[in-house]
Design a protein around this nucleic acid. Structure first.
Lengths: 174, 174
DNA sequence: GTCTATAGGCCGATAGAC
DNA sequence: GTCTATCGGCCTATAGAC
């Protein structure tokens, strides 16, 4: 809180005029992250390519850049909070879940846009959640190892998985 | 700290006789987790099957059980600390990295034991790290969604990936 | 080795002036 | 709306008796 007040250049009296508690501030931040996903994460990534599957990997590349630009200090801000705060407050857990749903919703839309390129027996919701799972896990391992390799290699494996299910025949065999 | 002292039934004076600081206690806990991986996580899982790849999934099933038994309060204790503590102390980050290396080392050994069943062009170290990545990400998403589905579905997708690289031909196509 | 007692600081939050 | 000033509590850590 001291860091936030200092960065904002205000005193605690001002902060508690707008937010009734520390948790209320956190909930507002999590609402803001929901609003910011599209303009700050999805749209910049989508601007790089029009291919639906390519857009998913463009989003994933954004987290790779974030890791590199911050020297592995910052990965996914939601993931940071997820394991730390989720069992301290049920309201916080629900807002984090909303952020995850927002994220997987955007990935799911890409999968639907690429519908005829994907095998019919692949559940789109489950696959979108798996993309989130791999991203969050890869960010964690990369940050702890202070190396981008675990992230890049996880995304590379995810890509081979996509190449596999994007083909209904066995054309990708090596 | 208050919870730890209460659970241990001692006063803080006793604790600081053995550990010079809060961080020193955390480092000792992380050392203990390194020691405990084999007897508490790996060996119980390995006792269920002798198949090397099956053993990897038996380990992963242990985390599934933990999530269910604790009502999603406890997943991987190392992952809990990873995002929260890694940039507060370099020594802590290194000990967490050691725990991750210990874990992927056990998985890597399984992959080496299954060597001739796996495609030759798959890097064993990278694959072991990917298994860790999927587990940690899946634990996070399952805890936030308070549902075992994201975990089970991530492991299921990982299994199809293993089925794919365990076959040099295209026999697993559906 | 464990206790009691407490130092000294930071924390979240509030009151009231302006 | 923002400030100054401050409260009471909790925290990590220490001192010293036993």
């Amino acid at each position: 809180m001291a860091e936030i007040l200092s960065a904002a250049g205000v005193k605690s009296g001002s902060l508690y005029y707008f937010f009734k508690s520390k948790e209320a501030l956190l909930l507002a931040v999590l609402d803001r992250y929901v609003e910011l996903l599209q303009p700050a994460v999805i749209e910049p990534a989508f601007a790089r390519t029009r291919d639906p599957i390519g857009r998913i990997f463009a989003v994933l590349d954004g987290y790779r850049r974030m890791l590199l630009e911050t020297g592995f200090k910052q990965g996914c801000p939601i993931g940071n909070l997820a394991l730390e705060m989720s069992d301290k407050s049920e309201a916080v857990r629900e807002k984090i879940a909303l952020n995850f749903d927002n994220w997987t919703g955007a990935v799911r839309q890409c999968l639907l846009d690429a519908d005829d390129a994907l095998a019919a027996d692949v559940d789109r919701d489950r696959l979108a959640t798996f993309v989130l799972t791999v991203m969050e896990g890869a960010v964690m391992v990369a940050r702890i190892r202070r190396s981008i390799a675990p992230y890049e290699q996880a995304i590379a494996i995810l890509r081979t998985y996509f190449e596999r299910i994007a083909s209904t025949t066995c054309t990708l065999d090596k």
